[in-house]
Structure formats: C-alpha cells, structure tokens
C-alpha cells in the first residue's frame, strides 16, 4: 500500500539552509547536503530544497549544489525557487534533481506548466501555491507571499493539474510559522478533488497536526521545516506515532 510521505523542507540561501518564519526573519539552520543526508537516514520520504538566493550567480551555484545533493542523498528530492524557464528545469534535472517546483512563473505564464510536463513528464513537475484565506476563500499569492491575486487557490490548482502538473505543494500563509496545525479545509478540498498528490505545508507544530492533515484532510504528504531543523519533532518518532494511529508509513 502506498504510504503517506513526510517531507522536510530546506530553504537555501547562498548554499546554506535557512528558514523564514512567516516568510521573514530568516535564520541559519545548517548545511543543506549534510542536513539532507541526515534526514534521509532518519527516514524522511522525500526532501524539498527551496532556493531563495537572489543574486546573479544563483543559477550556477544552485545547479552545483543540486549535483552534490544528488550525489549524497538516496531518496527523491524536489528543487524550487525562482524557476521560470524550460532551460532552468532542464539544467536542474540534468544536475540530478528528481522534480522541480514552479510557483509565480507558472501563475504568470500557465503555458509553462504544459510545456514542462510535455517535455519532462508530469511526474517531475510540482506546482507550488502560496495561499491565504481572506474574507470568503483561499487566494493565490505570488512572489513568496508578497503579491496578492484575485484567483482562488482551488481554481488555479485545478487548472494547473489539467495543464500537466503532477503534484501540488500547497502552503497556507495563515498557518505557516504559527505551529497551530495545517490548513485542513483548503488542503482537504484539493486532496479530495484533484487527481494528483497534494503536499500540505505550513503550520506543523505537533505530531497530532500530521495525523489531522493525513486523516481529516487526506493529504498525500506533509511538509515541514523548522520543527525538524530545530529537532522539536524527530522523524523516526513522528513516523512511529503516525503508524500507531493507523497511518501507513515507510520504515
């Protein structure tokens, strides 16, 4: 039986791991290759590396880093952050990334999703959505959560899946950094209505939060960063806990 996945996320800036609290106040949490290999050894099912470097050198630095990660990490990993062209994706996949995630660039140019899935296959195209609940619904935000759009998260996710996105990585900005739990309603809406896996992100604080997101929302995978980086929750203990709750886990 297919298991639910636990995915640590490593934000990368200039080759180092950082974590933003509510997308701000970044602090250093270690070396990405070492941390990635450690998580893999502890039983992480996959890794996500999100590059937030903004310099001109970023492309070259990132592809070199991706090669080193692929060399040392024996589980699948996704690379995201500022990816905006077929060329970017091609370089990263050739460097050894298993999947890439696109966010703002895909929203601004939805044809990119079609093009990427046609060229590289849906299985390696993850659509990342940052969303915030406002008034009556969940809306898509761009540029790391700084720019609001009038498009609803569900509508954009549905369109992206039709265009060929193979997975959705959904981050709730309301929940991110709060440690009060995942956004179960919007995660559930996507996970239960779309025919691709949905990775829930934002808000993990306790092991119970993972139970909720898998059992109530039926997410296919759950992503978290700081609780893992600062060892507040360790992956083996988390997977044991979830297994005790009858959630299928890999050991």
């Amino acid at each position: 039986m297919l298991t639910k996945r636990i995915i640590p996320c490593l934000d990368i800036k200039d080759g180092r791991t950082v974590k933003g609290i509510n997308f701000e106040n970044i602090r250093d949490a270690g070396d990405p290759i070492e941390l990635g290999a450690l998580y893999a050894e502890q039983g992480a099912d996959e890794l996500v590396f999100l590059d937030i470097t903004a310099t001109n050198e970023r492309r070259k630095t990132l592809s070199a880093l991706v090669t080193e990660i692929a060399r040392h990490v024996n589980i699948p990993f996704t690379v995201g952050g500022g990816i905006s062209s077929v060329d970017d994706v091609s370089v990263l996949l050739q460097s050894g990334a298993d999947k890439i995630s696109v966010n703002t660039s895909a929203f601004k140019n939805p044809g990119l999703v079609d093009e990427l899935s046609r060229q590289f296959g849906s299985q390696c195209i993850v659509l990342a959505i940052d969303t915030r609940f406002e008034g009556d619904d969940w809306y898509v935000y761009l540029n790391g959560g700084r720019v609001k759009t009038e498009v609803k998260a569900y509508d954009w996710a549905k369109e992206a899946v039709e265009r060929g996105a193979g997975e959705i990585l959904l981050t709730s900005m309301n929940n991110d950094g709060t440690r009060q739990g995942f956004a179960l309603d919007i995660t559930g809406k996507l996970a239960q209505n779309l025919n691709v896996p949905v990775i829930a992100s934002g808000g993990a604080g306790t092991m119970e939060h993972f139970v909720d997101v898998f059992q109530t929302a039926q997410a296919d995978a759950a992503l978290a960063a700081s609780i893992f980086h600062y060892k507040e929750i360790e992956i083996p203990a988390l997977k044991n806990f979830l297994y005790q709750k009858n959630i299928n886990m890999r050991f």
């Binding site: 039986m1 297919l2 298991t3 099912d45 299985q123 209505n193 779309l194 025919n195 296919d220 890999r250």
Partner: peptide, 17 residues
C-alpha cells in the same frame, strides 16, 4: 485506471511495498 473517480491518483507517486 481508477475504479472510482479520484480513488487512485495517477501517476502513483511515493513509497509502496
């Protein structure tokens, strides 16, 4: 092929035994 709509996500992505 999913026997019921959305029961089976396709592609299968993840760890299976």
């Amino acid at each position: 092929e999913s026997p019921v709509a959305n029961l089976l996500k396709i592609p299968q992505i993840g760890w299976n035994n």
